[in-house]
Simulated assay, not measured.
Amino acid sequence: MSDALHAGYDAVLFDLDGTVYHGAQVIEGAPEAVGAVRAYGTAVRFVTNNASKAPADVVTHLVELGLDAVVDEVHTSAQAAAALLGERLPAGARVVVVGTDSLAAEVEAAGLTTVRKADDDVAAVVQGHSPETAWPDLAEAALAIRAGALWVACNVDTTLPSERGLLPGNGSMVAALRTATESEPVVAGKPQPLLFETAARSAGSSRPLVVGDRLDTDIAGAVAAGMDVLAVLTGVATPAGLLTAVPAERPTHLAADLTALTLPADDLKIGPRPGWEITTGDVLTVRGSGDALDLLRALCHAAWGSGVTEVRAEGDAAEAALTGLSLA
């Protein structure tokens, strides 16, 4: 297993929603993949933008799904937001919480006072995902933000992967406040690099690998932190989205799911792949045959290098592969 992708790193930092699980449903192969990383002796960290659960609750959920985990391995955007507020505000400052009680507990642990209604003494607003967030919560936050309070968003993920499909994420609620206040929040979680940097530091890692499903948060955060990243197609990322990804959202490796962590690293890199020939012109012309994901890795390499994203197939095998990737 020494040539396995994970073997080239001293820690693997896993996103959760859309990467390890969809809500209450574990993604097939995830427990085995994480277990293989642990068995090799590589440090494991779970790095999530979801601020709705305390680290202990995240551990409970992971264990219920068949994964080993301890609290010190979990890093959430709620913790990042609380740390940011603690750095910027004096001790005891009043913070309006839009989110769960566990988010409020993180803020209070940072030495601040949490409230649910705006008043003249409110210094900040912190906003994280909660399925219970309603108009009155947003109204209190809007009043405080318009009065000059610091606004910190745990994350700006517009959607949240679940076992039923993509649901509105914290970013959708942030968008409502952005419209109502004409203000921009300070973002504590991904795509800011802080969560990944903190997780890597806690593992004593100098060469971590990030694994995630979302280009604008997981991959962008890893790129910002200067870390290699494996993008998986079990959540939000799509072949079409990868093909048109901007430089700040481009992974170094690509796979269908977490089970690829045990495959040879060279097989997963974005770049030219055996069996496929791609000619660059006004369009990317594909010839050959082989694995469809290999074709996507080669297409991303060609598209990112040339700026050409329109694809055309020559031959039945190429046409079938593009159709399977939803690129034809």
Rank of each mutant, 00 (worst) to 15 (best):
A302Q: 09
G41Y: 12
E64Q: 14
A256Y: 02
A123S: 13
G281W: 13
D294V: 00
A69Q: 06
E140K: 07
T198P: 00
T323H: 11
Y9M: 09
D57C: 04
G241H: 05
T114S: 12
R94C: 01
V34M: 07
A33L: 10
L242Y: 06
V236L: 11
L325K: 02
A313L: 08
A104R: 08
A200K: 02
A83H: 12
H61C: 06
E310W: 06
A302I: 10
H22T: 09
H75D: 01
E197N: 03
A142L: 01
K190F: 14
R178E: 15
T113C: 05
A33G: 04
A260P: 00
G23P: 08
A256F: 01
A56F: 14
L89G: 03
F14H: 03
V229I: 08
A302P: 00
D57Q: 15
A317T: 04
E310N: 10
H22G: 08
A200P: 01
L143Q: 04
D17I: 05
A317Y: 05
S206Y: 10
L65R: 08
S202N: 08
L13G: 01
G23D: 10
L85T: 05
Q25Y: 06
A110M: 02
G288Q: 12
T234C: 04
V71Q: 13
R312H: 13
R207G: 09
R214W: 11
V223E: 01
T100Y: 07
V187I: 15
P31V: 05
D157R: 02
Y40A: 15
A320K: 10
F14R: 07
A222Q: 04
A118S: 15
R88L: 14
G290A: 11
G171Q: 07
A82G: 14
R178L: 10
A147P: 06
V122R: 00
V246K: 14
A224Y: 11
D17M: 07
T309W: 13
H6T: 08
Y9D: 02
S77T: 07
A265R: 07
D266F: 05
L143M: 13
T42E: 11
R297V: 00
S289Y: 12
V286R: 02
P168W: 14
P185I: 11
A7N: 00
G111C: 01
E182F: 08
E140H: 14
Y9Q: 10
L242M: 10
A222M: 04
P251E: 06
G148I: 04
V122F: 01
A298M: 12
V44N: 06
G8T: 12
P136L: 11
G204I: 13
D17K: 09
W276L: 01
H75W: 04
T238G: 04
D282A: 15
W151C: 00
I270A: 09
T113M: 04
A302G: 05
T238H: 11
E182S: 14
R116Q: 13
P193Y: 10
V98P: 00
A30R: 02
A231N: 02
L261G: 02
V283C: 13
A313F: 05
E182W: 05
P251Q: 06
A24E: 14
Q192I: 00
A142N: 01
G29V: 05
G315H: 06
D266P: 03
R207A: 15
T285Y: 08
G281H: 12
G148T: 12
D101H: 15
V26T: 09
D119M: 06
T19N: 10
L263P: 00
H22K: 03
N50M: 13
K117Q: 15
V174F: 12
R164L: 13
D17P: 03
